[in-house]
Amino acid sequence: MKLAAYAVQETSARGRVYPEAESVSRTPWQRDRDRVVHSTAFRVLQYKTQVFINHEGDFFRTRLTHSLEVAQIASSIARSLQLNEDLTQCLALAHDLGHPPFGHAGEWALQEVMKEYNGFSHNDQSLRQVTRLEQRYVHFDGLNLTWESLEGLAKHNGPVLKPDPYLQTYNQYYPLELSSYASAEAQIASISDDIAYHSHDLDDGLRAGLLNLNELRDLPLVGEALHEAKKAMNDCQFTEHFDNRLRHEMIRRIIDYLVTDLKTQTLRNIEALAPKHVDDIRYAKIGVVQFSDEVGKANQQIRQFLYQNLYYHWRVNRMSRKGKQLVKELFSILSENTDLLPKEWQKRLQKASERKQRKGELRVVADYIAGMTDRYAIEEYQRLTDLAVLA
């Protein structure tokens, strides 16, 4: 497929930190995507919480299925806008590589315990994962992704005016031009994340019985999708699994509304900007990948609804509290007794100890915990304490 002039292209690519001969059969961003897919961090996403902890049911989203859904939506949008689909897919698949166990509860726990030591954020951790923590190659740590992929990971939410400490340090070593926007491909990956989790968290909330369809009737865009889904179901010949079919029809329509509006508004923005090169996208005054004002407001209302009615539902709060407490206690045990860390992590710890950096030692412990799945964190806690948790 011929790419638009403002897409990320091989002719304008800025290369990798460690020079490598490029593949004769794959683009640089196909290689990046494949490295992400084969990474340890990507594989363990299958047992990391999206909203519901792993043992609560086999049919709820995990960080892995969420990432795959983001990649599908993002790829479709990029292709229709003649953008670099490989780069978009890579960023969509990599955006949650740094998420710790138990979703945002685990992240909040690590933020608290690392508050005096440069804190913790899953975005910062994703960059650490692909630049340092993955140890698969003989010539370098990390995945040695292209500049464009690293830029997209660092700036997918827009210009970074107050970078996290690791990003700030890394940017001095390998400048990612943090004060500008990222490529249109990175912007698509970011907003596709919103589309995926808003629609699919509604789906999981309904499946779990924490939400009901009556609550959604007056929610902008969602209520319209529900109304149209009911009309379609009235003409449907199927009577079995009616509620499941209705739910899926509604979710399908929500995704379609959001994606269609996003593509339409983004094309308007691109026509107004008239970019001739990817740098015209980067140095624009606003991000070009956006919803229309009306749908953007509706999307924010969906987000607010989910926070009020799902993410802080009392049943979710109970599990989140347990997950947060477990992570904090794991950190306390391992930071005070670093000889309990596995052998390969002892080696990483030794480097920090040689530099007499307590901050570095604690970062190793945080890295170790951040890489755990929900299941492994529970089992590790039980091994260290003989206490059962998260029942």
Rank of each mutant, 00 (worst) to 15 (best):
L133Q: 08
Q135P: 00
Y137E: 10
Y137T: 07
V138R: 04
V138Q: 02
V138K: 03
F140P: 01
F140Y: 10
F140C: 01
F140S: 00
F140D: 00
F140R: 03
D141G: 09
G142M: 00
G142N: 01
G142L: 02
L143M: 05
N144A: 04
N144L: 07
L145M: 00
L145C: 01
T146W: 02
T146P: 03
T146R: 01
W147C: 00
E148L: 01
S149E: 01
S149V: 02
L150N: 06
L150V: 05
E151M: 15
G152Y: 01
G152H: 01
G152M: 03
L153C: 09
L153K: 10
A154K: 08
K155P: 04
H156Q: 12
N157C: 15
G158L: 03
L161I: 15
P163S: 13
D164R: 15
P165H: 08
Y166G: 14
Y166R: 13
L167W: 01
T169F: 09
T169H: 13
Y170H: 14
N171M: 09
N171Q: 09
Q172E: 15
Y173P: 12
Y173W: 09
Y174I: 10
P175K: 06
L176D: 10
L176S: 12
E177F: 14
S180Q: 15
A184T: 07
A184E: 14
A184H: 07
A186Y: 13
A186L: 07
A186I: 05
Q187W: 09
I188Q: 06
I191Q: 03
S192R: 03
D194C: 11
I195P: 08
I195R: 06
Y197E: 12
S199R: 03
S199Q: 06
H200W: 15
D201F: 12
L202E: 02
L202D: 03
G205V: 04
G205D: 11
G205K: 04
G205L: 04
L206F: 04
L206E: 03
L206W: 02
R207K: 08
R207W: 03
R207D: 11
R207H: 04
A208T: 07
A208I: 10
G209D: 10
L210I: 12
L211V: 06
L211A: 09
N212R: 10
L213E: 10
L216R: 04
R217H: 07
P220H: 00
P220S: 02
L221V: 11
L221P: 00
V222R: 00
V222Y: 02
G223P: 04
E224I: 06
E224Y: 07
E224P: 00
L226C: 02
L226R: 04
L226I: 02
H227A: 07
E228H: 13
A229H: 05
K230T: 07
K230L: 09
K230P: 01
K230D: 05
A232N: 10
M233F: 00
M233T: 01
M233A: 06
N234H: 08
N234S: 14
N234Q: 13
N234R: 15
D235E: 14
D235H: 08
D235A: 09
F238Y: 15
T239Y: 03
T239N: 06
E240Y: 10
E240N: 13
H241K: 13
F242A: 11
D243C: 06
E249N: 11
I251L: 12
I251F: 08
I251T: 12
I251W: 08
I251R: 07
R252N: 08
R253L: 12
I255V: 14
I255Y: 06
I255K: 07
D256W: 01
Y257K: 04
